[in-house]
Every structure is written in C-alpha cells, then in structure tokens.
Design a protein around this nucleic acid. Structure first.
Lengths: 244, 244
DNA sequence: CGTCGAGTTGACATAATTCAAGTAAGGTGG
DNA sequence: CCACCTTACTTGAATTATGTCAACTCGACG
C-alpha cells in the first residue's frame, strides 16, 4: 500500500491488474508537500497539471466579481483534483491546501497513455467523474432548494461519507479544519448564519463539537433533513471493457 | 449532415477521421421521438441508456422530499444526456422533453467499444464532460453567491451561448419554452420572483420579451451582472491521443 | 362561453444578511 | 512569562431580499 492512493481508491470498486496498478502508480511518481493555507494553483492561471491527493485536504473555489467566494468542493485523499485541466489550458478554479497536504501532480499529457493503453482504467475514471458530477448536482439542489440548516447538515454528512471511502473504520467523528466563514462559502451562507445553524444542530442533539472536532450523533436524521444521497456507495462497472 | 449530431458537435472542436465518424454515427442508429412534456426516464428508475439529442430541448431535474424541484440543466441538440448511467444503474435525475424532441438512445455498453477502439474520442468525451462539470460549478456559484437578478441573467445568457454552439448564426434571440415556475426551479427562485426579475431586466433594457421569445438586448451587461463565463468557447485538445 | 394555466401585481411574512459588540483562544515579541 | 494582537466564534438588533398568499388579467382551448 505504499503504492498509489489512486489505485487504492479504484480497488475499492474493482480489482486491478498488475499492469493497471503500475500505470496508476506512474501517475503518482512525483510528490509535493504543500503547507496548510498555501495556494496550489490560482483561478485563470495557466494550468496543465492534475493532482492526486495522497494525504490531507484541499479545497477548490472560485471568486466572483464582488469579492465573494464559492467553495466548490473539498478534496480528500484518493481524490483526483484539477481534472478541468483536461478541458482547459487555464485553471477554472483555485486550489488551496486546507491542511498540510501531500499531492502527486502529473501532466495532463499523461492521460494520453491512460486512454490509449488502459481503456478500462479510462472508462472507470469516466464513471467516477460522472459520479462526482452527480454529487455536484446534489449540491446544486441543496443550494437552490433547501434551507440553511439543511445545507449545513448535508455538508457535514457529505464529509463524513467521503472520508469513510478511504477510511472504512472512521466511526462518526472527524476533525473539521474549516472556519465558519469557509463553511459559509461552501454552503452559500454567511459565517454568522452558519454559526447559528451549527448551534441549532448541537441544540437538537444531532452533532457535537469539541474544539475543531465534529461528532455526528444522529446520522440518519442529518441525512434526512439535509436531503443527502450517498453517491459513492456503488459504481456500476459491468459495462467496462476488459482489463489488459 | 444527415449523420450524427454528436459528431457535428465534436467537429466544432476537432476534425474527425472517417472511422471516428462512423463510430459516433453508430451510437445514433436508433432514433426516438418524444412529445413535449413527456418523461424520458424518471429518477431512481433503472437506467442503462444514454441519449444524444438530435432535435429539441430536454431538461433534467431532481425532486426533493418536500416536493420542490431543482432543474439541473437544459439539454440542447448535440448534447449527451444521461451520462450518469455510466456510473449508476439507477437514474440520478429525471429527464423530460421541454419541446418535442428527437433523441438517439444507446446502451451504456456501447461506450465500451468507444473506450477500446477509439481512445481519442473517449478522451475528447472526457474533456467535454469536464467542461460541463465546470459549467456546473459556475452554476453552483450562481446559486450560492449571487442575487436573484444575477441568476436569471446568467440563466438566459447561458441558453443563448449554448444554442450558438450548434447554430452559429443564431443572433441574439431565442424561443424560451419554459414557464416562469420552471425558470424558478432552475435558478432556485419562486415563480413570482422570477416574474419580477424578468420585468426588471426588461425595464432596464437588457432583454425584450415577445410571447415566448427572448431577445438579448445588452449581452455584455447581462454577462457582467450574471457573472457569466462561457466555458464552451475553447476546449484544449492538445493532449489527446492520435486518431486511429 | 366557460375553464384552465400562465403571467402579473400588491400586501405581508420570514429566512437570512448585515452591523455591531463582545468573548475566547492562540501566537508573538518584549 | 506576561502583555498584546489577531483571528475565530458568539450573540442581539435592525435590515433586506426573497418567499407566501391572494386576487386579478389574459389568451388558449374545448
């Protein structure tokens, strides 16, 4: 397991061949450590790299003309980040380290070999990015059609759910290294209102907070009020081409 | 041009080989006509098909527990719809015909051949879906961080921009076959407030409405207030594998 | 000619924001 | 080790954008 986080992620879905394993490890050959708060790349800067996260959290966001920020997504170990580079020469969003992170950057040209030599991996990658797209539409519905409390609930549950993908034994609590302002920028709220909603969730016995730690006390109920759907539970791989 | 809408879309980006052309045409071999208002597939139903739109508009949406609806996206001729089938066995969203449409359904198993025999097309498809994902994050920022007027402005400009992809000579007006309630479900607003915002845009001389027709009078300004970014202008194809 | 869906408008309600002030916690320099 | 700053969190009061409710118009359609 000293190998590839990406491969590990894939293998939660499907056993890989040695050859496929090596191909994915190849993508993570170089490694870069980034300090908490440091910018990995900035919106509109030229960008030709993608990143696999090996350790720590990243976040991606865009800034609007009026200076407000929308955090698009948190990114966790095993995630592929910056795939928009596959479509554009400029970064569509900024990437910042939320904690100290270890990332493995690779040039988008490396995708070429993946698509030509490993059609099954390419297809699996495609399926995974579709699942992420659906998760994004869930968030769209969250921002467009649910209350502040529901958005915060869904945000927290999503983090827990996704962290469990790579850490099955995670339990029901995690360290949340975000300010309330950042949670607000992710959920489309103000920091003040995030504060009120979080306390409301505490009041109602749905979560507990100790320093930066969040403990989910009533997961089922949070899922309910947040309208949350776990999109990572199962990916259909029946249609994939055979391994080679 | 009696061939494939999908191929036509791709060729706006990149010239295709004959072989690639045939592969795409193969996906559109069967054709289905669907009446305005009819449901193509329903959320949570088993779903193994993807669709290429040949003519007309579709929309995709999800319903929340409280009965509210979030329209996720409008889909136009040349668009690939229902790609979430690549990840899931159940439909993640509902698809409904906004106008009478002609769609070309194909099984997701047909993607297998695309990934094995046409790596360049697969990679281009991947790049295109990444561009769509970025457009979705733009919408997330729109719902999360911009005013009602800005959301409506962005919604209208996005339609115009995307219709122009396949119809370069479109000019600055289009027929909008949506009720104000539907526009509200797309922008996260109520029908009443959509009404007020549309009239405000008319008042300010930014758009004109004649029956169901929308004319964009001041595109630049709408783009400005809507914080709109055209993500369809150019796709980087430099990294794609060679054609075969 | 009556019904129905969509658009329009005004009055009112409310969720969330803004503003402001204060507290707690952590980091730094003397 | 203490005094000081800074940053985040917390809380209340006032404000505002958007939602809700209700009534009316209009055109399409049977």
């Amino acid at each position: 397991m000293s190998g590839s986080c990406f491969a590990e992620r894939f293998e939660h879905i499907l056993p890989l061949t040695d050859r496929e394993h090596r191909a994915l490890e190849h993508l993570e050959e170089t490694q870069r450590t980034v300090r908490r708060g440091a910018v990995v790349r900035r919106e509109r800067d030229p960008a030709s790299e993608l990143y696999v996260i090996r350790k720590g959290w990243l976040m991606s966001y865009v800034l609007l003309d009026d200076g407000s920020r929308q955090i698009l997504r948190l990114h966790f170990p095993g995630d592929l980040v910056g795939a928009s580079s596959a479509a554009f020469g400029e970064a569509a969003d900024s990437l910042v380290a939320v904690t100290d992170v270890v990332i493995c950057p690779f040039e988008k040209s490396a995708l070429r070999a993946l698509f030509t030599d490993h059609p099954r991996l390419a297809a699996l990658l495609f399926a995974l990015t579709q699942a992420e797209r659906v998760a994004l539409t869930d968030r769209l519905a969250s921002l467009g059609r649910t209350s502040a409390k529901a958005r915060v609930a869904a945000f927290l549950i999503d983090i827990l759910t996704r962290l469990r993908i790579m850490k099955v034994d995670l339990g029901d609590s995690f360290l949340l290294p975000l300010t309330q302002e950042e949670i607000g920028d992710a959920t489309g709220l103000t920091a003040v209102h995030v504060n009120r909603m979080m306390r409301a969730l505490v009041e109602e016995g749905l979560i507990a907070r100790e320093n930066g730690n969040i403990r989910i006390l009533n997961e089922e109920w949070l899922v309910r009020i947040g309208n949350y759907i776990n999109r990572y539970a199962e990916i259909d791989t029946a249609w994939l081409p055979p391994a080679n």
